[in-house]
Amino acid sequence: MIVGVSGINAFDNPGPGVGVAKSIKEDRELNAKVVGLSYDAMEPGIYMDWIIDKSYILPYPSSGHEAFLERLYYIKNSYGLDFVFPNLDAELPLFMKYQQELESAGIKTFLPSLEQFKLRGKDRLEEVASKIGFESPKSQVVTSYEELHKAVERLGLPVMVKGVFYKAYKANSLPEAVSYYNKIVAEWGYPVILQSVVYGEEMNVVGAGDGEGNSLGMVGIKKLWITELGKIWTGVTVRNEKMLSGAESFIREFGWRGPFELECIVDTKEDKVYLIEINPRFPAWSYFSTGVGVNIAANILRKAFGMSTKDFNDYEAGKLYIRFTDDLITDMSKFQKILVRGED
């Protein structure tokens, strides 16, 4: 099978693609070739030919669905493309909307429905959390200084000031909150979310649902060391039963289909798990789960192609994840080809 993987931007804000590609390659029974779907000739995954067999430049999803789908059909016809893992937030709505069309063109996906996708909205956190036995911090969406002031008054200080997709700052005073608000608006635009601060351990779950209420595998981790962008650099597997059973409820309760990441803060003293964010895709660290024996990406492919899925009941707590930087020296020709032809 030939599997397309996007998000192969393995730099300081790493995409999940390279980890997903590595996971696919590690399941030898799949005998899969991986196609890198990139948006820039400089995305490192393009040059990692021991993981990614062939790469293509795609038009941005924002340039319209027709050009985007045409490009995928071109790849299908010229090289082959049986499945796509879209790993970037900006791509997901397009892939979800056109999954039937893609399927009829012979390109499978394994994604949540648009209705499920909406659950990730920060305005739905409370509802999701209460259905899966989690708590949620009080939050408020703001789009003006006036709303910001009111939100700070309501939520109290300190308060988290967050962008819709990226960035989160802890503000200890109103002027600090205003300054972070401006910073987020300048970089990521409106709206901004204000969230009350909850205390505990920052833990995450990567998992996938089969769309019928069953898990295709999940692993809980704690981030030990993160970069300035909040990306994990060192982590450790944990077995927090409350968090894992909540993630199972998430799959069961909402019939979740496809990969997801739940970002949580776990208060072990009070035995409470706060749901901070739902990401409807693999996280950048998804290879961690494969490394501890839970190959979620491969299991999704197995499910999608009607192969027997693996039952991952357990993994070892206390396994370490270490990200590292590396160097790669290659010929200019690869860069030239990808730039001129849009593929190599």
Binding site: E201, M203, I221, K222, L224, V236, T237, V238, R239, N240, E241, V266, T268, D271, A317, G318
Partner: peptide, 24 residues
């Protein structure tokens, strides 16, 4: 809750708490 029973302890005095992901 007594979590001592869940701790992984080695003979050199390294202790890992699998619930919180903390080590001592």
């Amino acid at each position: 809750m007594n979590r001592l029973s869940q701790l992984a302890i080695n003979d050199e005095g390294f202790i890992f708490d699998p619930v919180r992901g903390e080590s001592f």
